[in-house]
């Protein structure tokens, strides 16, 4: 079978299997919600089986599909060449060190400055948005009165309803910043490359990298490791004597039913 046909077969098989897996997952979730809403209390093994028996077909299909996938892997696809993901920001920083922007023509300089300003403003906006989200979340989360320990589950739901929008906004702000900055980096990189192509190779210097101070780094690393090791061992010894270790044992050999989600 040609590679192209094989690739198609793999793709179609994968899509079908994905659908089966997703449907099986949804079936599990729906059955679970049905069991919960059925109002039967207490639950028995038999009553749970009767609900889950209805999803036995997708489960079997799923298992067969997985086994089929193993058989299909007997006919592997040729590996595709790995294309590197270039961090434009890193490359740009390195290139900026090698070339003198002031030697570029004024139009290019202006455009580069514009891109840098855009990134600066975007980053400031992102940091502001994050600070606002964090402050709002912390004001709620650190208020003892929001967690009176009367009905813990509903208190958690309330907390999530309040904090979740902040999380979404915060992540959204980061995502927007990443997108804007990346496209800005790409644009600036194109400008820099353009001016590079006109400049002579010599202007880049000899290409030697800044050699990091290895000895200093190693000394710092050794010091940090030693410090951490000493702190860790001291903490463990204190913990053994102050009952911390016994606490770990007590918790581990007892089952706190709520802690593992049994309810």
């Amino acid at each position: 079978m040609s590679q192209e046909k094989l690739r198609k077969l793999h793709l179609i098989y994968g899509i079908v299997l994905s659908c089966i897996i997703i449907v099986t997952g949804i079936c599990f979730i729906v059955s679970c919600v049905q069991i919960y809403n059925s109002g039967m209390r207490p639950f028995t093994r038999e009553s749970i089986y009767t609900h889950f028996i209805s999803i036995v077909v997708p489960v079997i299909l799923c298992i067969v599909g997985i086994i089929g996938g193993m058989v299909l892997s007997l006919f592997p696809l040729e590996k595709q060449k790995i294309k590197g993901i270039i961090d434009t920001g890193v490359i740009l920083n390195k290139m900026s060190r090698k070339i003198d922007i002031s030697k570029c023509d004024s139009d290019t300089q202006e455009k580069i400055q514009k891109e840098r300003k855009l990134r600066l403003f975007t980053n400031i906006f992102c940091i502001d948005a994050l600070v606002v989200c964090i402050v709002i979340s912390l004001i709620y989360a650190l208020n003892k009165n929001n967690f009176p320990a009367v009905s813990i589950n509903s208190e958690m739901v309330d907390a999530m309803l309040f904090i979740l929008p902040c999380i979404i906004v915060g992540l959204g702000a980061i995502y927007a910043t990443v997108l804007i900055c990346n496209s800005s980096y790409s644009r600036e990189l194109a400008l820099v490359k353009k001016s590079l192509s006109t400049a002579k190779r010599e202007s880049l210097g000899d290409g030697a990298q800044d050699v990091p101070n290895n000895r200093g780094n190693e000394r710092f690393l050794l010091g940090a490791r030693l410090t951490l090791f000493v702190i860790a061992v001291t903490f463990i010894i204190i913990g053994i004597f102050n009952g911390g270790m016994a606490d770990v044992l007590y918790k581990a050999i007892n089952i706190c039913t709520e802690c593992i989600g049994l309810g």
Binding site: F229, A232, N242, G244
Partner: peptide, 25 residues
């Protein structure tokens, strides 16, 4: 992670030493 939370939620304020030491190690 369970032990860390147990130590943080526990009544003995000093008991977190052990688990912090383990995590550091």
């Amino acid at each position: 992670l369970g032990s860390l939370q147990n130590a943080l939620t526990g009544q003995d304020k000093s008991t977190a030493f052990y688990i912090f030491g383990i995590l550091l190690l």
